Computed example of a mutant assay.
Amino acid sequence: MKNKILVTGGAGYIGSHTCIALHQAGYDIVIYDNLSNSSREAINRVSKLIGESIEFIQGDIRDSELLKQVFTKYDFFGVIHFAGLKAVGESVAKPLMYYNNNVSGTITLLEVMTEYKVKNFIFSSSATVYGDPEMLPIDEKSPRSCTNPYGQSKLVVEHILEGLAVADSTWNLVTLRYFNPVGAHESGQIGEDPNDIPNNLMPYISQVAVGKLAKLSIFGNDYPTVDGTGVRDYIHVTDLAAGHVAALNYLEQQVLPVGFLPINLGSGKGSSVLELVTAFTEVTGQNIPYQFAPRRAGDIASCYASADKAQALLGWEAKLSITDMCQDTWRWQSMNPNGYQS
């Protein structure tokens, strides 16, 4: 019998790609999403790509009564928890909203899981928990600190998971710390569809390329990096999805619980903003006009992962290149100039 997985936030950017990977790996999925930052159309397209309809429940992770109904109806092997707000700037402006959704919502979900004895949990964390790193590459033992409420909400959840693992040794709490997810499904049918002006670099570039935005603002050109612009570890969303499948496969094979297990998902290489702009232009032939703007508060110069632990434990490594990321982003954006509203 296939193991059934609850995917919270499964209609979102990373969630939708992971649902395809889970289905291909033989898992049975149920999506739970309040659609506050995602689209029903994404689920429709995932259904078309996998060739069957997906169980979908529209609900909020803070709604314990609805969650209990879902856990009563289905016998889950585990939960992959993507549901959360994720815009750094918005988190600075609305910290209570972020703590309420990302922290309180996760506590509610964990309480329901405890009641129904579902103890396999894969958490969507972030490299932002490392703050401004003291050393590069960043491994899982690096000190953690945060420069904004979004990152802080992820770090608070990590502390909650650590405490839960100490209090109850039967839990498997895998915390996947993503670096910078970019790209789209090779079909061009699903991709990143931000509300309003994008917070992330690649959708900003692709919206300039498609004519939705006039030019790219590059925040800071005086960092101590190869060309003065910020350096980040970009990872294709398809590789990231495969990391979640690898984590689930790993949990299926364990005889003893793993407790709290943090794992970086990154390529292990850094690319600057200008290097990414240049690659996008070369791959797509689209000119990307840009201007330099002052540094943003809370931004750091360089950030890239050591992904050795993911390789050793999960047998996972990033396979797709910056070229793949640019090609797939442009295919999605040019086929869907207005995202899922196209």
Rank of each mutant, 00 (worst) to 15 (best):
V226P: 07
N148V: 01
Q207Y: 08
N195R: 13
K212V: 01
I197S: 13
N120Y: 04
M202L: 09
Q189V: 00
L164F: 03
R232Y: 07
L164I: 06
N200L: 13
I197T: 07
C146Y: 12
V129D: 14
L213V: 02
D132N: 15
K117M: 11
N200Q: 15
N200V: 12
F179K: 08
K119L: 04
E162N: 08
G220F: 04
V174G: 15
N172G: 14
S217F: 03
F179A: 00
P181Q: 01
G151E: 14
V210F: 04
K141N: 02
E162K: 01
V129W: 13
T128H: 13
I160K: 11
H185V: 02
N180G: 14
P133Q: 07
A184R: 09
A127V: 10
D132F: 05
K212C: 00
E140I: 01
S217W: 02
G191Q: 10
E192K: 12
N120I: 12
W171N: 11
Y150H: 13
E158H: 02
L213W: 03
G230I: 00
K212I: 02
P194A: 09
S206W: 04
M113N: 00
Y150Q: 15
Q152W: 07
S145E: 06
K119E: 03
P143A: 03
P149T: 05
V156Q: 14
N200C: 09
P133N: 02
W171I: 09
P143N: 07
A214F: 10
Y116M: 12
Y204P: 00
V210D: 00
Y150N: 15
K119Q: 04
A184Q: 11
P224A: 04
K141L: 02
M135N: 15
P181Y: 09
L213R: 05
G191N: 12
K117P: 00
N200E: 06
I218Y: 10
G183V: 01
M113K: 06
I160H: 13
G220C: 00
E192M: 10
L173S: 15
T170H: 01
G188D: 00
